[in-house]
Nucleic acid binder design. Structure first.
Lengths: 236, 236
DNA sequence: AGGATTATTATGTGCAGACATATTAATTTC
DNA sequence: GAAATTAATATGTCTGCACATAATAATCCT
């Protein structure tokens, strides 16, 4: 009983968020229904409207509330909850799992892309492309096979980088920030990659294709195939 | 030339965020380095500190900046960009893709879970479980096969729901909000599910296992296997 | 010198007030 | 009665100020 002079007299936006979240869960506010407006809630909680605003804004970006000016705030009927999937940084992910990480450059050469890659990267045909294939291991076991195409017109500097030590991904993440991109996940058979991933050609593997852009200029397309035993885990 | 009296005199937090983002991209602030503090930036932009704070906070949650009290704000060396993966609401997803959605209940019965399911849900053994298998179609083509276990002790109400019309997922999303959960993605062979997904037993399919909880009580475990042609797409 | 104590500083957050903006509701006009 | 105008309202955001908090830097004491 000592320092309840000031800080305790005001209410934190987190506590309001938690209280409102509990009410939504308990269906004190029915799904689809309007909740009290910010002024009323501020009066109820005994705080400024800005504090309520911060709490409700947070719940809205988390997908539990829908807010519109004048129309008010209502509880989402089917809360669209999202898991955040961080773009894989294989080295960090492997080390975080407690395993020893190793990277092996398999091939690096200027190459002509197949039609599918050209289409993904929206290439005109005159661009120079660097193709890099590599293998990432966890505790000496093959973890992921990577086949990458890099548009040298967009990131010319990478042509002089030694990719035997640093993976292309790590260099690009640091040196070539992208503005946007897309990811695709699907299952397919290992095929020839089974050789690198130490599995049969008809074993199922999870493959991710990622394309990144710097505004309108394509940077890289990478296809990563994970070892059959790998599972991608996400928290909700 | 009319209404530049007031609104224009203040700077929006979005414009500050965009300016700072451009500087990070252009490496005006080097990776790993401190950027000016909020007071200085506010002076530069001619706005209140709170406005700068909002902009920088946004960039921090997007993964481009690291902020610590007293230590200041610095540019992340390897920005950990995240894609938000919304939990699949199959009906909405199929319809959004422009296809006709159809749902078929295949089986619904009280059943005893195999050890793997029991382990995932941390069951003691005394719980009653409802097992629901269903097929979701897009334009009359099998899209996803679902095998679900529902813990009736946690959501007793679902025992009386007619699951021939409404899928268990849609009911649960609306009626049984969860506090947290996990998702796992991996590739496997279709096996017996090939019968429902109209593919060979050794065709590779992408499977997701999702477990959700209401505090410490398990709600449901669902295993969804997608048609071999399906690709999960995300924007970055 | 080493360790404990005391400033100092940058971010985090709260408040009251003001105006902006998007919508919806009410009202007027034809 | 339909269309156009006007009013009302809830959220969005900015300002200026104050104090809280965490972490570092400086200082003091032995």
């Amino acid at each position: 009983m000592s320092k309840e002079g000031k800080a305790d007299s005001s209410v934190s936006w987190q506590s309001i968020r938690d209280t409102m979240m509990a009410r939504i869960r308990a269906q004190d506010y029915a799904p689809g229904e309007l909740i009290p407006n910010e002024v009323d809630l501020a009066a109820e909680f005994g705080c400024a409207r800005a504090t309520v605003n911060r709490a409700l804004r947070d719940l809205a970006t988390s997908g539990f509330l829908d807010r519109r000016r004048k129309a008010g705030t209502r509880v989402r009927e089917a809360p669209r909850r999202k898991a955040t999937l961080a773009i894989p940084l294989t080295r960090a992910d492997v080390i975080a799992s407690g395993a020893r990480y190793e990277y092996r450059l398999l091939e690096r050469k200027l190459d002509t892309p197949p039609p599918l890659v050209r289409e993904h990267l929206k290439l005109s045909g005159s661009e120079r492309l660097l193709r890099v294939q590599s293998l990432h291991l966890a505790d000496d076991v093959p973890h992921m096979f990577e086949d990458r195409w890099i548009v040298l017109d967009t990131v010319p500097d990478i042509e002089d980088v030694d990719l035997t030590e640093t993976s292309a991904n790590e260099w690009l993440v640091r040196q070539a920030p992208y503005t946007h991109g897309t990811m695709e996940f699907f299952a397919e058979t290992a095929g020839a990659r089974g050789q690198h991933l130490v599995c049969a050609p008809d074993d199922p593997v999870m493959t991710m294709i990622r394309v990144t852009w710097l505004e309108a200029a394509p940077i890289t397309l990478v296809q990563q195939s994970y070892s059959p035993s790998h599972r991608m885990r996400l928290d909700l």
